[in-house]
Design a binder for these strands. Structure first.
Length: 278
RNA sequence: UCGCGGGGCUUCU
């Protein structure tokens, strides 16, 4: 039998606002998960005002409703509202602590993040990873590695965050050593290694790595595309763009900016005008 | 059943 809810949450997860809204409006009855899924569709659009307005119309709220709206503010860097929500919501669980922690991290609030982390009643691997990633992203790789050694279990996302930090600092040797020592590598860690070579302007090693990757996706293709563009190798950029598994707004923007960077303004404009929307 | 952490263009860093 047909499930309204499954359709609604599928649309919401894929950012199909209009379709989600149609489902929501047509549902014979709406339970709290349905309201929450619809709220997620609102927040996905990035329109905080509409999201808040919708949130205010809820017949009731649960932790998930509160956390969804909290994350919406956090993702737009409205840290004050995020904090306010965090403190006014009736209960806080681990997910919501993690979301607040990530919000501080996004804004670079090291002290707030630290004291929240230390004061947390419970920590999950995500709490540890959030703090580790924060330290790694601000260049405190040694501290990040200390966290890595202390955490109860070490996962690939934390490991990749450290790899990314090495890449960002231009420490290619350390990056490669870390990469090779990882218990296993996934698409993201391979792509970060690719970035490491690119950041050191070692595009030929990046090309080798790209060829060695067990899987690739639109992100890794776009990474290579941008790398070639930076070298002024527009032909290879265009080739990757044309043969990429898919296209999205970011890969189109990357191609447009590839043309623009290299003074090929007519082609840039042509692509820009040919884009689906905006 | 629904909410949190790692990779690509652009802005910030």
């Amino acid at each position: 039998s047909f499930s309204w809810y499954l359709m609604l949450s599928a649309y919401a997860r894929n950012g199909k606002f209009r379709e989600a809204k149609n489902m929501f409006d047509a549902m014979p009855q709406r339970d709290l998960p349905a309201w929450n899924a619809m709220l997620a569709a609102f927040t996905f659009t990035g329109d905080l005002e509409q999201s808040q307005h919708f949130f205010d119309r809820f017949p009731q709220w649960n932790l998930i409703s509160w956390t969804t709206i909290l994350v919406a503010y956090a993702q737009r860097d409205h840290i004050q509202e995020t904090e306010q929500i965090f403190h006014t919501m009736p209960h806080r669980d681990l997910v919501c602590y993690n979301a607040m922690l990530a919000a501080y991290a996004r804004c670079g609030y090291l002290e707030n993040a630290r004291s929240l982390f230390l004061g947390m009643p419970l920590r999950s691997i995500i709490s540890w990873s959030t703090v580790l990633t924060f330290l790694a992203q601000v260049g405190l790789v040694v501290d990040a590695i200390n966290i890595f050694k202390c955490m109860p279990e070490q996962d690939i996302r934390s490991s990749t965050a450290i790899l990314a930090a090495y890449a960002k600092k231009g420490e290619l040797e350390s990056a490669k050593r870390w990469f090779d020592a990882m218990p296993y590598r996934d698409l993201v860690s391979w792509t970060v290694m690719l970035e490491a070579y690119i950041d050191c302007e070692n595009v030929s090693e990046a090309r080798n790595t790209f060829g060695l990757m067990p899987q690739t996706d639109l992100v890794s293709w776009t990474t290579m595309l941008a790398a070639y563009a930076q070298q002024g190798d527009l032909d290879r950029s265009k080739l990757l763009f044309d043969e990429a598994p898919q296209r999205d707004v970011i890969s189109c923007n990357a191609m447009i900016s590839a043309y623009a960077q290299n003074g090929r303004l007519e082609e840039a404009e042509e692509m820009f005008n040919g884009m689906p929307q905006r």
